[in-house]
Design a protein around this nucleic acid. Structure first.
Length: 774
DNA sequence: GAAGCCCACATTTTT
DNA sequence: TGTGGGCTTC
């Protein structure tokens, strides 16, 4: 049997139909868990086996991670070499590459760098400030959102001011100067030789629009175009794809309208719904069999999503076991909710003898994780929180990357501003402001001003001038060396010569050590990148090459966990595309899920409903939904109403038995009281202290658990959950050991011997100590 | 120029 | 409750 047939034999009928149809445009509507990625990967493998040259295939994904995974899977079906020749990646990374290559056609230098959203926001903030506008009226975040939206609609700053209806609507929304800000923002980006994320797509469209020869070149290059997660594409992305495929019409898009959850970011579900309008001859394939979940889970999710209007009709079904009903568990408080979640994890783990890594707790907002984490920690359940700060968002990592950016493109304003005083070299905010002001007046980049500050009449004293010149020299040396050295060598040189390395080594605190590790990680990433590129035949790998890769990498799956057996905690958004045996969805309450922000907008409510659909369909075997009657939000207790979505789900597939309250007999009453500190004697004690440290109100069962955990420690004198001999960590003083304890309640004090300091007596209430595991 | 203090604020997130 | 931004003070 040929490999081609082998590939096809692993597919069901509808999957196979979608894979083998290669003669024209096709839309694959793939229900949750129906093997969407499988179709895409197998289709590419099939094309390759049929003899389609890999360098003529363009596959666009939504995240870098998705691209990576797909490459691995295709490599397994075919071979490594072929996969390397495929054009596969995110819209942004693919077209960044192309734009750099074609830069001069759009009036950019080929070494232009990328502003991430923080950079853009900072720039917008400083423009608003320079225009002396009220940042309550012109909120940087809102302005940024609008610029992004406008760019996605392919409206340039120049064309914006000519659009009367837009100017009028800005007046109505009381931001008449938006157009001005947009223009200045654009100008500053051009001066700095940078593009933001949206500009990459906008410029790609301009490139193709204004240069027929280049468009022709890429049409010829990309003879088959495949797009994953098509429901999440925006107009600019849609248009790029349309332009490329207009003639050959070999396009295959895959997506699920029911899983469109990024419209707040400009994703336009219409791209998918109207595919047939653009390509009347298109074949539509529907993948409706769900291989992931039990019937109850699929049916529950279906009954929910059916409440939405305007979707592509499809019937997702499962032939797996009927399975457990979706269990709905009410809790008295968010605190108890955490308790019930952790109990459930333990119960199911015992019952099914499964791993912690088979569980995921999903929530609508990141803020919900804290309380759940606490509950898991109490039961010694290992967990990992996804989201929050990713590796490339960490300060020290961003600093190093900013150095790279400046060396590649010294005009990059945000990067330069970021590192000009890192490590501290006496160039403060005032001086930077002076430089920025001069740059604005002369319409030059800061780097150009820096070449001769006096000529541009920057009002600095001799001392500061000297510091600026020192900085200029450091960067100039890097730039010179960068002509000859590899990315690897440059990265090492930059880290050592800039003084970053030594400044990090001085810091012996926990955070300092973690920063050093992160710095090493960056170096490692550079070396790995170099060796990969070399193995692919590159002779010299430059820092600039590395930046192409890294500028657009923000995902957080970088580190392989050393102890992978952990419960996963993440937002529903970040769970998209993943699956778990057991999924717990927390906080199904009005104003939380659906979010309070979506209350007045039926479309937003539908998106929230799709979000819950995504959450439920992550589950393979069991799905549990919890909600609470009261919840702490912004430091205050609020009464909550169960989510309307609970009524949307057909009760046939729910297990809402009264007995779910049974568990509330164990801890809840106390937990409930805890959430109303006023009814407590020592309510003067900060609320969080009580929640974390006060054992007084804990049920016998909980206490037993805690005891067994801390059996050793309980033999010694204890206070507020601290024990003599505990290793603790203080934010300022670092590691220490508790020598003695005294006082009670809010006056509880601990005498602590810190590693590098004398003994100190601290009031526990204020010290915010963390206990270190031994 | 840097550290500390106070007040306002509080989705979802990838590129 | 926590955080980040802006302001003040040393």
């Amino acid at each position: 049997m040929e490999n081609k047939d082998l590939i096809l034999s692993e597919l069901n009928n509808s999957q196979r139909d979608a894979v083998v149809y290669c003669d024209g445009p096709s839309l694959v509507v793939a229900g949750a868990g129906s093997g969407k990625t499988r179709v895409l990967t197998y289709k590419i493998a099939y094309l390759l086996e049929k003899g389609f040259p890999p360098y003529h295939i363009l596959a666009l994904t939504f995240t870098n991670k998705a691209a990576r995974e797909m490459k691995t899977r295709i490599a397994a079906l075919t071979n490594e070499e072929v996969v390397q020749q495929l054009w596969m990646g995110t819209f942004h990374s693919i077209f960044y590459r192309i734009l750099r290559y074609e830069a001069e056609r759009i009036g950019y230098r080929s070494d232009f760098t990328i502003y991430d959203s923080t950079d853009s926001k900072n720039l917008i903030r400083s423009i608003i400030k320079e225009l002396q506008l009220d940042d309550k009226v012109y909120q940087p975040k809102i302005i940024q959102g609008r610029i992004s939206m406008v760019k996605n609609s392919l409206i340039t700053a120049a064309s914006y001011e000519k659009r009367r209806e837009l100017i009028e609507s800005d007046k109505r929304y009381k931001i008449p100067l938006f157009s001005k800000i947009y223009q200045l923002y654009q100008m500053r980006c051009i001066q700095a030789g940078v593009m933001d994320f949206d500009e990459l797509l906008l410029q790609t469209n301009i490139l193709f629009r204004d240069n027929p020869d280049i468009l022709e070149k890429y049409r010829n290059k990309f003879r088959y175009v495949l797009v994953d997660e098509y429901q999440d594409t925006n107009f600019a992305q849609h248009l790029i794809v349309s332009r490329l495929c207009e003639n050959h019409r070999r396009i295959c898009v895959v997506g699920d309208d029911a899983q469109s959850i990024y419209s707040f970011r400009g994703a336009n579900i219409d791209n998918m719904l109207r595919f047939k309008d653009n390509y009347p001859e298109a074949q539509i394939f529907k993948l409706e069999q769900n291989y992931r979940s039990t019937q109850n889970i699929v049916n529950a999710a279906n009954s929910l999503i059916r409440k939405n209007k305007g979707q592509i009709p499809k019937t997702v079904f499962s032939e797996n076991a009927t399975g457990h009903k979706v269990r709905v568990i009410p809790a008295w408080s968010d605190y108890e909710e955490g308790f019930l979640i952790s109990s459930h994890v333990l119960d199911v783990r015992m019952e099914e003898r499964c791993d912690y890594s088979d569980f995921a707790v999903l929530y609508r907002t990141n803020a919900q994780s804290r309380i759940i984490e606490e509950a898991l920690r109490k039961k010694n359940i290992p967990y990992k929180v996804y989201g929050g700060q990713s590796f490339y968002q960490r300060k020290e990592v961003k600093d190093i990357i900013a150095y790279f950016r400046v060396v590649v493109n010294p005009h990059d304003e945000e990067a330069l501003k970021r590192i000009i005083n890192i490590p501290a070299r006496g160039i403060g905010e005032t001086t930077i402001q002076k430089l920025v002001a001069a740059a604005t007046i002369h319409q030059l980049s800061i780097w150009q001003i820096l070449s001769d500050p006096l000529a541009y009449s920057v009002p600095v004293n001799a001392g500061t001038l000297h510091k600026l010149m020192d900085f200029r020299k450091i960067i100039n040396d890097f730039i010179a060396d960068n002509m000859q050295l590899s990315a690897e060598e440059m990265a090492k040189e930059i880290i050592t010569q800039s003084g970053i390395a030594s400044s990090l080594f001085e810091d012996r605190t926990m955070e300092g050590i973690s920063r050093q590790e992160n710095m090493q990680e960056v170096l490692k990433a550079v070396s790995e990148f170099c060796s990969i590129k070399r193995s692919e035949g590159a002779e010299q790998v430059s820092l600039s090459d590395f930046l192409i890769e890294v500028a657009l990498i923000t995902d957080q799956d970088e580190k392989q966990d050393d102890s992978p057996n952990r419960v996963t905690l993440m937002t529903v958004h970040s769970a998209k595309g993943l699956e778990f045996d057991h999924v717990l969805i927390a906080g199904l309450e009005e104003n939380l899920f659906p979010s309070s922000m979506s209350m007045d907008n039926p479309n937003a409510i539908e998106e929230e409903r799709r979000l819950l659909y995504v959450a439920i369909t992550r589950a393979k075997r069991r799905c549990v939904i919890t909600y609470s009657k009261s919840r702490y939000r912004n430091g205050q207790s609020n009464t909550c109403v169960p989510s309307r979505f609970l009524m949307d789900i057909d009760s046939t597939y729910l297990n809402q038995s009264e007995s779910s309250y049974a568990s509330t007999q164990i801890a809840p009453k106390n937990e409930y009281q805890r959430n109303f500190p006023s009814s407590y004697e020592e309510s003067a004690m900060p609320f969080y202290e009580k929640r974390t440290r006060d054992e007084a109100g804990v049920s016998p069962r909980l206490k037993r658990i805690e005891r067994s955990e801390n059996e050793e420690n309980n033999k010694v004198q204890t206070l507020n959950g601290f024990h003599v001999g505990d290793n603790v960590l203080h934010k300022l003083f670092g590691k220490g050991v508790i020598v003695s304890l005294e006082g009670e309640g809010g006056n509880a004090k601990a005498e602590i011997k810190f590693e590098h300091l004398d003994k100190k007596v601290l009031i526990l209430k204020y010290a915010k100590l963390t206990i270190q595991k031994k």
